[in-house]
C-alpha cells in the first residue's frame, strides 16, 4: 500500500503555560513564551506514524503554516517519526478558512490518501480547519476520532459524540481529526532528534500559493475573563450545608 498521510501541525503556546493577554488588547502574549506543537496535532501525528508502522501508509508528511520558527515544530514532528516536512511560511495570524485553503493546495500537490489532523488548536480553539478542508476537497470527514481502523480503502472511525461513541465508515481519501483519547503520543528519542535534522524540510511562501489570505474576522479586542475570587474554607460538613442553604441559597 502506498498511501501517503499528510499531517498539518500548528505551533502554539505550550499547554502548560497560562496565557497572558497582551497589553494592547490585540491578542495573547507570545514573545518569549514557550511554544510547542498543538497537543491534538501530536495525537494526529502519532496515529499517522502508527498507520505507517502497521503498513497502512508508506510515508508521513507534516506541514506547518506559520512563521520561520515553526520549523522547530516540524523538526520535532520528524523526530517523532514523520518522513518529511513542508513549512508554508507566513507571519500573518491566519484564520482556519485561509489555513484550509492553503492546506488544499498542499493536498493537491502531495496527493495523500489521508489527512490526519488535530480536532482543534489550543490557541484559538476554533475546531474548524479539518471540517473546512474536507468541504473544500469534497472529501468525507471523521471528526473527534478515538479509534481508527483502515481496511479496503476505507477508514472505520470511532467518534466521541455527546453521550457516547459513534462509529462511521468513510472512503479514503478522507480527513480525520483526532480527539484526546485516540492514542498517547511518543516522545522523540535523542538519536531520532539527531536523525530528524537530516530529513528533508521544504519551505514555501504562503503568499506564493495563489490563495486569498484576507481575514474575514476583525479582532475588536482580546480581554481577560472575569476572575473568580477564592471564597471561604469551612471546617465541617454541617457548616457547609448551612452556608449553601442560607448564604448561597443553592440547596
Amino acid at each position: 500500500m502506498t498511501m501517503k498521510v499528510l499531517v498539518p501541525v500548528k505551533r502554539v503556546v505550550d499547554y502548560n503555560i497560562k496565557p497572558r493577554v497582551a497589553a494592547d488588547g490585540r491578542g495573547v502574549e507570545t514573545q518569549g513564551v514557550k511554544m510547542s506543537m498543538n497537543p491534538f496535532d501530536e495525537i494526529a501525528l502519532e496515529e499517522a506514524i502508527r498507520l505507517r508502522e502497521k503498513g497502512h501508509a508508506s510515508s508521513v508528511v507534516v506541514v506547518s503554516i506559520g512563521p520561520q520558527a515553526a520549523q522547530d515544530t516540524l523538526r520535532t514532528a520528524m523526530a517523532m517519526g514523520a518522513d518529511q516536512a513542508i513549512l508554508v511560511r507566513t507571519d500573518a495570524a491566519l484564520e482556519p478558512l485561509a489555513v484550509a485553503n492553503l492546506l488544499k493546495v498542499i493536498v493537491e500537490r502531495e496527493n495523500p490518501g489521508l489527512v490526519s489532523m488535530g480536532k482543534q488548536a489550543i490557541d484559538d480553539d476554533m475546531n474548524a480547519t479539518g471540517q473546512i478542508l474536507a468541504a473544500k476537497l469534497g472529501w468525507p470527514q471523521a471528526t473527534f476520532a478515538s479509534q481508527v481502523k483502515i481496511h479496503d480503502g476505507k477508514a472505520e472511525v470511532s467518534r466521541e459524540v455527546d453521550g457516547g461513541i459513534e462509529v462511521v465508515n468513510v472512503s479514503l481519501p478522507a480527513v480525520i481529526t483526532a480527539d484526546l483519547r485516540l492514542n498517547e503520543p511518543r516522545y522523540a528519542s535523542l538519536p531520532n532528534i539527531m536523525k530528524a535534522r537530516k530529513k528533508p524540510l521544504e519551505t514555501l511562501d504562503a503568499e506564493s500559493l495563489g490563495v486569498d489570505l484576507t481575514p474575514r474576522l476583525k479582532v475588536v479586542n482580546v480581554s481577560e475573563p472575569p476572575e473568580r475570587q477564592a471564597g471561604v474554607i469551612v471546617e465541617t460538613v454541617d457548616e457547609l450545608v448551612h452556608k449553601l442553604k442560607t448564604e448561597a441559597k443553592v440547596l
Partner: peptide, 12 residues
C-alpha cells in the same frame, strides 16, 4: 473564549 477560556476575543 480562546486559549481554553483564559482570554475572551471580540471579533467582527
Amino acid at each position: 473564549p480562546i486559549y481554553a477560556g483564559n482570554a475572551l476575543a471580540t471579533v467582527q
